[in-house]
Structure formats: C-alpha cells, structure tokens
C-alpha cells in the first residue's frame, strides 16, 4: 500500500507532463509534430543544464541566484577569448585561443565563480541566498566591463553549430543536456558525492558527525553549478552567434522553478535530477503551448507562476498525508 503511494508521488510530475501534452495536442494541430518537439527540447536544453546544477545545490539546502549572470559572463568571456584572444598590453603578450580552449576557459571560469560562492558560504557562513545574490550583481557587472556593453558577435560557423547545429537529427544543445543529465543522475544516485549531497541536505549535523567534509562537498557542488551555468552561457552565445551582455537575466528563476516543479524540496535532502528535467520540460511545454494557443505574453507569465504554486501545493498536500 505504502509502496503504491510512493510510486504515485514519484510519477506525479510525469503524469502532469503527459496530461499537459494531451491537452495541448487536442487543442492545437501543431503541438504533436517532430519539429515542434525538437523546438521545445532545444529551448529547454539551456534551462536543463542550469537547473541540474541548481538541483545539486538545492539538495544541500542551498540556492544559487547568480547562475543567470554567470551564464552571461562565461558566454561573453568564451566568445571574447575565441574571437579576440587574451592581450596583456603591459607586457606585449598575446594569447590566442582555439574554440575548444575558449570553451574550456569559459567552463573553468564558471567553476571558479561557483567556487567563490561556495567559499563565502562555507568559510564565512554567508547565507547562500545572500552570497549568490551578491555574485549575481558582481558577475553582471564584470560582464558589462568585459563587453563594454556591446555584444561580441560573428563567432564563425563551427562555434554557432554548438547552438544551432544538429547531430543525428537532434539539436546539439539537446545532446549536451542529455550528457549533463546522465552524468548528474549517475553522480547523485550512484556515487559517494551524491550520497553526501543528500546527507548534508537531510541533516547537516548528522552528516558532519558521520565524518563528511561538509565544506568540501559544498565547494564541489557550487563549482559544478557554476560550470553548468557557463555551459548554458556557451550554448546561448552559440545559438545567437553572439554574446549578449544582457543574456541570462532572470534565468535563475526558471531554473529554480524547474527544480521546485520537479519535486525537489528547497529545505534540502529530497528530490532528484530526473524530477528537475521533467520540471524544465513542463515549463518548456507550457511556454510552447501558450504560444501556440496565441495566449498573450502577459498571461503566459501569470500561468507560469500559477503552475509553480500549484506544483508545490500538490507536493505539500502529499507530504501531509504521509
């Protein structure tokens, strides 16, 4: 009996997604086409990358508000390094970057920013909300400084392919998201690190007394989330063939929404990457459906907000019954 209950809870978001798809399929002709499906997936790929990192953080009972800005900064730096290289005017030194080199540098920068978030949280006990809120502003500021407020465009066909190319009919960003999700699922479900993440979110004191190095785990998690935001930035930049200084604004909210709709508890210890992926797809399908139904963008925001609220209420009601 109790086993059944758990199963229903587990598939709650999947059922919601299926219902949503059926309703949209009945209401519009275009929804159930391969083209539209791939379109939705391409749109949610970036959010899936960011939200996967966010899930790891939220599982430790933390949060990262800086991902949108980190996305913009790392996208811009990757584009800038690839296109213009790195110049040291004082010493006449110039370092050029290959595409792969620039991408790696962007990912590393994301990890570094995440590490700094983790450092202020673990070393100085700054609440994650505040530490990453500060980083949101700082990273955006650096983005503006680095780009001087102008987009960095025309990055070449190879780079653009990361965002708009396909591989076996499926968009490259979707492949990237799939790889990220598979790795994240393995890490959370099958490795020591994953267990520690859940343990810290479930009961930090007990985790500490069990000999887990809380600080180290948190540093790793925030760094991972930072580099996943950077990956999102690289995809966004490639898709537009241009790094926009204003990229990624309010992306953190979409990521948190995906995490929450996917059933991960903001107080930590409960939830899954799988749920977050479903959450991100639900948001994507909803956006897509509302556009297909010609709902005004203003109403779209209202509906999206209401869905988030509804998802959490259903989750809480389920908890009470237990």
């Amino acid at each position: 009996m109790s086993q059944n209950k758990i199963d229903i809870k587990k598939f709650q978001s999947l059922i919601a997604l299926l219902l949503l798809c059926i309703v949209l399929g009945l209401m519009t002709d275009k929804f159930f086409t391969a083209e539209n499906g791939l379109n939705v997936l391409r749109q949610v790929a970036v959010n899936i990358c960011i939200a996967t990192g966010m899930t790891l953080i939220v599982l430790t009972a933390g949060i990262d508000l800086s991902v949108g800005s980190v996305l913009a900064l790392c996208g811009a730096v990757t584009a800038g390094l690839f296109k213009n290289g790195l110049e040291f005017p004082s010493s006449d030194l110039f370092v050029g970057f290959t595409m792969l080199g620039a991408i790696l540098a962007g990912l590393l920068l994301g990890a570094l920013i995440g590490w700094i978030n983790g450092f202020s949280i673990t070393k100085f006990n700054v609440p994650p909300f505040v530490a990453t809120l500060a980083m949101l502003t700082i990273a955006r500021g650096f983005t503006m400084l680095y780009t001087k407020g102008h987009p960095i465009s025309n990055l070449g066909k190879d780079f653009a392919n990361i965002g708009s190319g396909t591989f076996i009919e499926i968009p490259v960003p979707v492949w990237l998201a799939i790889v990220v999700v598979i790795i994240a699922v393995v890490v959370t479900q099958k490795t020591r690190l994953g267990r520690y993440i859940y343990a810290i979110g479930g009961n930090e004191q007990a985790a500490k007394l069990s000999g887990i190095n809380i600080k180290k785990v948190k540093l790793i998690v925030y760094s991972l989330a930072g580099s996943l935001a950077a990956l999102g930035g690289i995809i966004v930049t490639a898709r537009l063939d241009s790094a926009q200084p204003n990229a990624g604004i309010s992306y953190e909210l979409d990521a948190i929404a995906a995490v929450v709709i996917g059933g991960t508890s903001l107080s930590g210890g409960k939830g899954s990457v799988r749920g977050t992926v479903l959450g991100a797809i639900i948001i994507g399908v909803l956006n897509n459906g509302l556009v297909l139904l010609n709902v005004s963008p203003f109403w779209q925001q209202v509906v999206k907000g209401a869905v988030i609220l509804l998802a959490v209420i259903i989750d809480k009601l389920g908890e009470k019954k237990e």
């Binding site: 859940y198 343990a199 479930g202 009961n203 004191q205 007990a206 210890g269």
Partner: peptide, 18 residues
C-alpha cells in the same frame, strides 16, 4: 534525531553513510 540520523532517508543509507 538531531545528530545521529538522517530521518527522511532509508535505513540502508543511514547505516552505510560512514
């Protein structure tokens, strides 16, 4: 409850955590 166990997690993962 406060320091020994992760109450929401399974008996199995509580035993193996160390």
């Amino acid at each position: 409850k406060l320091h020994g166990l992760i109450l929401n997690q399974t008996v199995k993962s509580n035993i193996s955590i160390t």
